[in-house]
Design a protein around this nucleic acid. Structure first.
Length: 335
DNA sequence: TTAATTTGACCCTC
DNA sequence: GAGGGTCAAATTAA
């Protein structure tokens, strides 16, 4: 929120500058138009980010309500076998396997030799397919700023793995609850972009949170009434959210209208060897590649001011400029 | 110093 | 054996 406010302040400052120089720019329509565009862009960015925040909170609230409804209706649901438990924004989650297979000890002692890392007394609980308490939802990715970050969902997560998935363009990220140790919280989630829609994350949750009392948990999301009120104040057209179509239909339409170049992010990174983790190279949180930083700096600074959330290991600017870097790199090799 | 991320390797399920 | 999920050492940022 502070970012957005600073963005608005920045827009105000630009407007003030324009006002002061208005007389000078009166005879320079190109510069004048440029200034107007810049100001409009800043405010548009701030507005869109606000809308995105509102959208996400509304979506989360709808999902929460739906989870509860599913729990109540669970005994009465008949689920197609091929639904695979997918719970997208358009329908009710099948959850056919939910609560069926509870945690069970792994089969007899084995191995304990060879790896040097494995403990003979410890067997990891492993499950696959029909996993207990598995829920899958689809959430829109941020279309501006750092699109690599999955939307917040009310919990804090720690990434513990990332892997190329066969047949998927994008790697799957594995997260566990940050409070796993403190609260013995077994909640986990997997995040993966959809192949056919890079701006949608498929998030699979497993396990239940035992850390709901955590002081770090975010506050309760706003009510629908609050959201509607906010949207009304912003002049956003309001349509029914609950009973017709996807719960995010209203703001999403606006969201999708944003002028973003749809690059096929990460598609070129997809390797063929699926049993290898992927990443940006080098352990630890990665930083923005700084090749050609002198040429990019003004633009990067501006974009940073407008978009950067500052908390991701994969900066979106990296994506934006990677193609240009490639061109330069190719040029360097030619020379 | 602590916490988070990356990533190679291990191990389980299918 | 392939593919997916997890571990844990190395690394980095706060």
């Amino acid at each position: 929120m502070e970012e957005m406010i600073s963005l608005i302040y920045h827009g105000c400052a630009l407007a003030s500058d324009l006002e002061l120089n208005l007389s000078n720019l009166a005879n320079q329509p190109i510069d004048l138009a440029r200034s107007c565009d810049e100001i409009a862009g800043v405010f548009s960015s701030a507005r869109d980010r606000l809308n995105s925040t509102i959208l996400l909170r509304e979506f989360q609230q709808q999902e929460l309500l739906r989870y509860r409804a599913v729990d109540l209706l669970q005994p009465h649901l008949v689920v197609p076998e091929d639904s695979k438990g997918t719970f997208d924004i358009h329908g009710v989650p099948p959850e056919s396997s939910r609560m069926e297979k509870m945690e069970q000890p792994m089969g007899g002692g084995e191995d304990a030799s060879g790896s040097g890392r494995a403990s003979s007394s410890f067997q990891r609980p492993r499950r696959r397919k029909d996993d207990a308490n598995k829920r899958t939802i689809r959430v829109p990715a941020p279309r501006m700023g750092n699109t690599e970050i999955p939307p917040e969902d009310g919990h804090t997560w720690r990434k513990y793995g990332q892997k190329e998935i066969l047949g998927s363009k994008f790697p799957r990220s594995y997260y566990r609850c940050t409070h796993q140790k403190l609260y013995n919280c077994n909640a986990k989630k997997q995040v993966q972009r959809l192949d056919d829609d890079p701006f949608t994350f498929e998030v699979t949750y497993r396990g239940e949170h035992a850390c709901t009392m955590s002081s770090t948990a975010p506050s309760v999301p706003p009510t629908s009434a609050e959201v509607v009120q906010t949207m009304a104040q912003q002049g956003t057209p309001i349509q029914p959210l609950v009973s017709q179509g996807p719960p995010i239909s209203v703001p999403l339409a606006h969201w999708l209208s944003m002028d973003i170049n749809h690059r096929n992010i990460g598609a070129s990174d997809a390797g063929t060897n699926s049993n290898r983790m992927v990443g940006s190279g080098g352990a630890g949180p990665s930083t923005v590649r700084l090749g050609r930083e002198n040429e990019y700096q003004p633009v990067a600074d501006l974009a940073d001011a407008m978009f950067n959330s500052g908390s991701s290991s994969n900066n979106s600017m990296d994506i934006i400029f990677s193609s240009m870097e490639d061109k330069w790199d190719a040029g360097d090799k030619m020379n």
